[in-house]
Design a binder for these strands. Structure first.
Lengths: 340, 340
DNA sequence: CTGTTAGCGCTTTCAC
DNA sequence: GTGAAAGCGCTAACAG
């Protein structure tokens, strides 16, 4: 491997000139710079990562901690990890994957050894131990998700409460007033997984505001059947359904409704909200208020890069506004095909 | 952050003694070592990663390249990335995630800058550009998966041909002779994704050896229906089915068979083979010859660690033997419930 | 058994 | 506009 020495010799300049020519941190005579770049290219020079890290006191590495729960949706997990990685590359960072048992210990380690310049925290629980950890370590950290106590933390996430409101409002506009929510499995709620709680809360609160009953069901066995049955029991006239649940459950909702003699979207209009998966290929594609991993991750990494550069940013929580995708699963109550 | 200097001062020894006390690379008087360890603990000392990298010429980082295809199974993708990460930690390596467009360029970069000590290549196609890249760069590389030309490469993978044979044999033992295969979508086959090809080839070859028809179907639209219909057309007496396909397709196989008036496992016995997902929660759980990500990744990382340490290992392909998990979806033809 | 010291390859002052 | 040189914090000879 060619070193900066080799390039300097080849170009007939000093190594500092090479360094500056490549970093652009000070202006050189155009001709000199050309010569250096040519020499570097000729030798196939690439700077030695650890030497650069040590000298510059910057690793150009971000750590992303993504713990694994028994109910973890691997697919969503991967999408977030990849989107963080992609966003990081735009800022010239590579990303280290910290998983499982290593999610906390790895955070401490990569911060303590200066392995990482910053940390992205994924899959946040309400009482996540990584929240306190982030306060303790001296390493810029951004949460994608919002723990119960955000004191001193920087957090980014979709505004799930707003997403829940928008979903209800869209159904109201379609003349639907008997609205239910299929939320996440109880297992997920029990560990106080961050966004399912916030979505449910937003849903319940807004339903109360606009004077709706709005029952909530938590599916079991990764199927919609029981959840739909429970909602129909609580609300026999169910005509609107909000889904903030897993892909598996969502994909069986239409079938479950049909088994109970309800058509979609005529009898029951459906909206999937705060979900990462696409419903485009479902029997009936659902209107969706997506949880856009790319948007969340870019926002988080942009913030993190800024914190690393500035050395400081005021702790704050950024809520990303929801967007609405129409796919035809919400129709006005008066135009119900079953009544045509 | 405390440095090795601080620890040396605190313990009243030289920095090399600290280094040796912590690395154990030479023997010290027990008391000295204790004193050093105590001092390190007291100061909360953690070695500076980049300094260690530079001095030791070892980054303790592995890169894992996992490109993204339109038909990528994110869930399986994540499982492999995580299993590599877990296995790497056992050897004191961290793992860098290289995704997407960065899969090749990132490989070159992390090798060229000495960012990574080694590379794990995931999701290998038959004519994967990363094969040639691995030969060109001077960085230990292990493939999980097997490209068409393995010259000079180190590869690890499940023995998919053996898995296909075992699946057929298990059905033969159960008295089934009209066996079909539901393989991967054509999209996946077209890019010559590595293991679906090898499984299909193993299946077709062994079927010929034992004198079976053995039609193969490639599902569309991520559903089993059309594939099952195609197989039944080719083989109206279908009584055995091998699945080497996506979770989505596999989960709808039983329903598709039932729609065609066939029971599982009575009329048609089913085996899922070379798959990462579990069928335990399916309506009818399938006997499975698993593609064990953990096993493949451990084997690959163990090998890689050895190559990094030894500086050399003979290029070779390691095929992991398949195992069989019984879940009751294969019954003998004479005990067909539908005939009881 | 322990200490001294020369780097590892780069960045960045400081000097010209 | 360019060069010389002092580190960054560690590892691993080389000495004793």
């Amino acid at each position: 491997m060619a070193t900066i020495q080799d390039v300097a010799r080849e170009a007939g300049v000093s190594i500092s000139t090479v360094s500056y020519a490549l970093s652009g941190k000070r202006s050189l005579k155009a001709e000199t710079r050309e010569r250096v770049l040519a020499a570097a290219a000729a030798l196939g020079y690439l700077p030695h990562a650890s030497a650069r890290m040590l000298a510059a006191n910057r690793s150009h590495i971000l750590a992303v901690t993504a713990p694994l729960h028994p109910d973890t949706d691997h697919s969503a997990h991967m999408v977030f990890a990849m989107e963080v990685t992609k966003a990081a590359r735009l800022h010239d960072y590579d990303t280290l994957l910290l998983v499982d048992t290593d999610a906390s210990e790895g955070m401490r380690r990569s911060a303590g050894t200066a392995l990482a310049d910053g940390i992205v925290v994924l899959d946040v629980d309400a009482h996540d131990e990584r929240a306190q950890l982030a306060r303790d370590i001296a390493c810029p950290t951004v949460f994608i998700g919002i723990p119960a106590d955000t004191t001193g933390l920087v957090c980014v996430d979709l505004d799930f409460a707003a997403a829940a409101r928008d979903a209800i409002d869209a159904l109201l506009v379609a003349g639907r007033r008997n609205i239910g929510l299929v939320s996440h499995p109880l297992e997920t709620m029990r560990r106080e997984s961050n966004f399912p709680l916030r979505f449910r809360e937003g849903f319940v609160d807004h339903a109360r505001e606009v004077g709706l009953e709005a029952p909530v069901a938590h599916p079991e066995f990764h199927r919609a059947h029981e959840a739909v049955a429970a909602l129909l029991e609580a609300q026999p006239d169910l005509d609107g359904l909000v889904l903030n649940t897993t892909a598996e459950v969502a994909s069986s909702v239409t079938a479950a409704l049909v088994e109970h003699g309800r058509t979609v979207p005529g009898d029951v209009s459906v909206i999937a909200a705060g979900v990462t998966f696409s419903t485009a290929r479902f029997t009936v594609p659902f209107d969706t208020i997506p949880l856009d991993a790319s948007a969340s991750c870019s926002a988080a990494v942009d913030l993190l890069a800024r914190i690393i550069d500035d050395g400081f940013v005021a702790p704050e929580t950024t809520l990303l506004p929801p967007t609405y995708i129409t796919r035809g699963s919400v129709v006005h109550a008066t135009t119900r095909p079953s009544e045509v």
